[in-house]
Every structure is written in C-alpha cells, then in structure tokens.
Design a protein around this nucleic acid. Sequence first.
DNA 1: CGAACCCTTGATACGCTTCAACAAGAGTGG
DNA 2: CCACTCTTGTTGAAGCGTATCAAGGGTTCG
Lengths: 250, 250
Amino acid sequence: MDSYNASPLFPHRASLRVLGGEATRSAMQPADWQALLGGPGLNARELQALQGLPMLRWVHAGELVFSRQQAATALYAVLDGAVGLGLARADEPFQLERTVRGPQWLDASSAWLGGTHAQDAQALVDARLMQLSLPALRALLQREAGLLERMLVVLAGTVHSLTSVTHDLMHKDAERRLAAWLLQRCRCMETGGAQIELNERKRDIAAQLAITPETLSRMMRQLNRKGLIEVHGYSVKVLDLDALKTLARD
Amino acid sequence: MDSYNASPLFPHRASLRVLGGEATRSAMQPADWQALLGGPGLNARELQALQGLPMLRWVHAGELVFSRQQAATALYAVLDGAVGLGLARADEPFQLERTVRGPQWLDASSAWLGGTHAQDAQALVDARLMQLSLPALRALLQREAGLLERMLVVLAGTVHSLTSVTHDLMHKDAERRLAAWLLQRCRCMETGGAQIELNERKRDIAAQLAITPETLSRMMRQLNRKGLIEVHGYSVKVLDLDALKTLARD
DNA sequence: CGAACCCTTGATACGCTTCAACAAGAGTGG
DNA sequence: CCACTCTTGTTGAAGCGTATCAAGGGTTCG
C-alpha cells in the first residue's frame, strides 16, 4: 500500500527490427577469451591461435541472433549485453526461458550435434556477440588439446546449471524459486551489502522463474511482508540473508 | 471402470542395501564403447587405448552409485540396467528426477568441474556400470583428439536433452508432458506398431514428468477416453499417433 | 493367512494462472 | 504545453490444474 513501488524506468523497447546485424572480422581482447574459457591463464600461443577465429557481431535489442529452424554451424557467445533463449512465435511476445548476459557462452552445444539450434535467441538489449565457426574451431582444437579441455569444462558447467534449473522447477514453488534467484544474484555480486539492482524487466525475471508477472509481484510483496527483503522499484535490499537461504535450500 | 487395469507385476523391491558394490578391472565390449561414444566406427587404435581405462562395477537395485556430497573424480556410465538421478533423503523415498538406462552416460560432466556431483544416483534395478577415472581419461584424450571430440558431442547431447526437459516443464501441462513422453518411447522403439512396454514403475514415470502417481493415472485414463491410447497394465498401445503428436508439440 | 507394495479412484484443498482494471512513466504530436 | 498512446508493474476476483488425503483392490512374499 505504501509507496513501495518506485521509478520503473524502462524506455519503450526498440521495435523488433530483424535487420541482418553487421558481421565483421575483428580482434577480441584476451580478457574476453579468459572469461569465456575460464581456468588458469591462457598462454600467448593459445591466445594467438584463438585470435584469428571469431566473427564479431553487434545486434540491437529485439533482433534475432539465430532461430531454431536454422542449422547450427557455429558456437555463439555474448561478450556484452544480454540475449534471451526461448521461443519466438508469430504471435510475437518472445517466450523467454533463459537469459545469457555479460561474457558467457550463448550456445556452445548445438553445433557439435550437427543439427539445428534447440531454441531461438533474441537480443534483450543491444549486445556484442562472438560467433565461432565449428570447422575452424575443430581444426584448432586438434592442435591445442588444452583448449579442448576448457571447452569440455564449459559444456559441463552448462549441464550443471541446467540440472539445477530442472531441479528447481520440479521441486520448488514460486516463492522458493524467487528466493533462490535472489540469492544467486547476491552471490555473483559478492558484496556483503546485499543490494541487488534488477537491470532487466520484471516480466523477464518472471519468465525465467516460469511464473507470471502477477505472481512475481505478489511473491516480492510476500517476501517484503515477511521482512526478508525490501523492494524499491528495481532495487532490492536483502534484509535477512540467512532466512532467504533457509527458504531457498532444497 | 472396465478392466483397463491388468498385471502389475513388480516384485517387492530389494530393500535398500548400501553395500560397496564389487569393483573389478575387466574388459568392455567394443559395442559398449560405440554405444557410449557414438559417431562413426571407432578404429582399433582408439579401442585399444580405451580398453585399459574403465573400472566395471555391478550394483544391486536400491544401491547408491554416488552421492552428491561426494567429490566427483570419475565419469560414470550405465552399461546395462537403469539408474536414477535425483535426491536421496533421510526421509527415504528417493526423489527421482531423471532415469538413465541401457548403454548411456550417467554423469559425464561433474568430474570436469572439479567439484562434487550435483545429484545422487541410485540403481533402480540391478545394473552394470562403468567408471572412468578423470586423470586417466584426460591423459588419453591428450593423445587421441578424435575421442575428445566424441566426448564433446556427448556433453552437447546432454545439454540439448536437459534444455528440452526444462522447456517442457515450463510450458507444457501434465497431459502434454505425458504425450511427449509416450512419443519419445515410441520413437526409440522405431516400430510402426506403436506398442509401448513400460518396464519401470509408474511412479517413476510420474516422477520424471514431475507429477504425482495419482495424476499420471488420471492422465492415462484421460488419453484413453479420448481414444489416443489403450492401456493394459504396463503395456500401452498408441491408437492415434498424429493426435498424440499434435497434443505434444509445443 | 497377513504384510507390504503397487496402482487406482474420489473428495477436497491449495498454488498459480487468467482476466480485468488501474496507476505511472515515456515518447509522440497537436 | 497538453492530450494521447504504449509499455510496465500492481492489485483483486474468479477459475483451472494439480497436489494431498483417504480408501479400496490386486499381487507377491513370508
């Protein structure tokens, strides 16, 4: 009732342009590679070998990166911005299932299977992407076995992440999924302050949690009433971290 | 109402023994490797290289294969039988999330991440397992790049499978998930006859679909009434394949 | 035989969705 | 500047889908 709602400040989304997206061959930063491949520091030779491969590409908000009918011949990664994976339907509103942000792989698996992508990918905000043709990568990995292991670790991480998602969907109700989501956001900020800035639309958060925006709103209020969090528009302060953990855990 | 129920013939499950499970170093069949790694035929050198690695292991129904507290230092595969992935709780009944049967990888991802397993694994029936120590495998893959790519394809397949599961959980109701599950069972039999033998407990099927056994029973009856399938105990005949596909699709 | 396990069926309860209405910010164009 | 529209989030009432609880029947085992 009180003014717990404040400053929703999303501009009208750019109408969904489906332009081509300019593709250029361009240099990546070593830090980009390190973020994507993880593990110990990449040596100069590995960086050298990687450098020639990628196509960089800028896409605007709403633009499709790839569609699920389309043969997967490359691996994709998001360098900056955020891209959503889900279903694009003629009936328009993109059915978001998972969002990929910052430096992270978008789809490192489909190309290996020789089929088509399993989902559509749509830029949620303007984004900088990398695209890695499979044949070129395959040739490189033959020579650099160390990189191949890093790719295995990347895919293994995706498997674990998806396993966790399915577990939550099967066994946790909306409130507990939200609690888990908030905790994950806390953790990746790594600050004890426990102040979370939502830099995406709430309906996109709801989609990832597989609930409706209405339910998300009610759950937020509910956690607010219980004194676990304090919500002011798009910023959430965690008041009782332990209670939140207890709520979220299995 | 009519005798649509027939011949449920499950013996009492072996009480959950948590013995060690005998582990022996023993030869695998080339066909086992081919089934696990897929792709074009493995050549003699590759088979030779693989042959020395695995530990074979027999486990009885109800026995734990690994637990999620436990450090993951090996890759696991099921050669014969069926193993369930999920949560084992002190409160006993194993919370099944996914079943792995026949020749298939059980957990090929956890070891690469250097952490613990994400789930518990429990044999659903007596099973023959293979266990591949990560260091040994890693050394082998350095030399045999062709095998490494096969491992990547395996993990990529797991990612796709899990993506499909989460999609279904997010967007399909119980009836449609059951329809999709039945179709998948049809397809892997590859016979036009479309007769499905359920060789697992219905409550295990229900668990995979993230519904209760009661709901599964009702959904079966519902599809029966609609004339899509005909159920006799543990065998299901598909009467209207097209209708089933229409129901299951997105 | 009873005990243990499985599946089924019915009545009830709960979680979440759907539908509708409203408020507020942000562009647009007169 | 204003009215107008589009989008977003919020709130409330009603309804659907599924879980929960309880009871009953069938089969196997001891």
